[in-house]
């Protein structure tokens, strides 16, 4: 029951993998940002943990990687391409749509 804003938040995948990421990175996703918004007091915002029943660990890992990639190269001009495994492509697209990134 921590009410103050922590620097890190935990993202949990459907198969039980936990990813501790910087709050600022996680909030790149519009959905996660709102989930964690303390103003409304949903469970997620009080525990600083988000569970995603529809994402596997592999997908969520890639998502977190993208969060960091995005934050790092936000303003850079010549960002290197990020590597996506092809077999995850479709699932990643769905996840991106779901998370609003």
């Amino acid at each position: 029951m921590s009410s103050e804003l922590t620097d890190y938040v935990t993202l949990v995948s459907s198969d039980g993998f936990s990813f501790v990421v910087q709050r600022s990175c996680a909030c790149i996703s519009g959905a996660i940002k709102r989930m964690l918004d303390p103003a409304y007091g949903f469970t997620e915002s009080r525990t600083n943990t988000c569970r995603f029943e529809n994402m596997s660990g592999a997908v969520l890992e890639k998502v977190c990687e993208y969060f960091y990639y995005k934050e790092k190269y936000q303003d850079a001009k010549d960002a290197p391409d990020m590597d996506f495994p092809l077999e995850l492509a479709l699932e990643l697209l769905i996840a991106a749509d779901y998370l609003d990134v």
Binding site: Y40, F42, T43, E53
Partner: peptide, 15 residues
Amino acid sequence: NASALSFEALYRNAY
């Protein structure tokens, strides 16, 4: 009475 609700669950349902 929102504190017991999971945003993710609601969000997923609407989704």
